[in-house]
Amino acid sequence: MLRVGAHTSIAGGVHNAVTEQLDYEGNCGQIFSHSPQVWQDPNIDPENATQFREQSADNDIGPWVIHSSYLVNLCTPKDDLRAKSIDSMQREVDAADQLGIEYVNVHLGAHTGAGVEGGLDNAASALNELDVPDDVTVLIESDAGSGTKLGGQFEHLAAVQDRTDLDIEFCLDTAHAFAAGYDISGPDGVAATVTEFDDVVGLEDLACIHLNDSKHACGTNKDEHAHVGEGEIGEAGMRALINHEDLRDVPFVLETPTENGKSFEWNVQRVRELREN
Rank of each mutant, 00 (worst) to 15 (best):
E196H: 15
S33K: 00
Q40C: 07
R272Q: 14
E169D: 15
P46G: 10
G147L: 11
V250R: 06
R3G: 02
A49S: 12
G115L: 05
V200G: 07
F264S: 09
A217S: 14
D213Y: 07
G29N: 01
N277S: 10
E235G: 00
L254S: 11
D162N: 15
T148S: 14
D213A: 06
N27Y: 02
S69R: 05
R248N: 02
L139W: 08
A114L: 12
L247N: 08
E20Q: 12
F52A: 08
A236M: 11
N27H: 01
L166I: 07
T256D: 13
I233K: 02
G237F: 07
N48I: 04
W266M: 04
E196M: 13
V116Q: 09
I233R: 02
E273F: 06
E276K: 04
P77G: 03
W266D: 14
E25W: 01
P133H: 14
G119D: 08
R272M: 13
N221R: 11
E92T: 00
S125D: 14
M89L: 15
N221A: 12
D183Y: 00
G109V: 09
D205P: 01
C208W: 00
I209F: 02
A57T: 12
G181H: 11
Q153V: 01
N43W: 07
D198H: 13
V136F: 09
A217H: 12
Y70I: 11
A114N: 11
Y70D: 08
K215M: 14
N212C: 06
D58H: 03
P257T: 09
R3F: 01
I10D: 02
L241D: 07
G181C: 14
V65G: 01
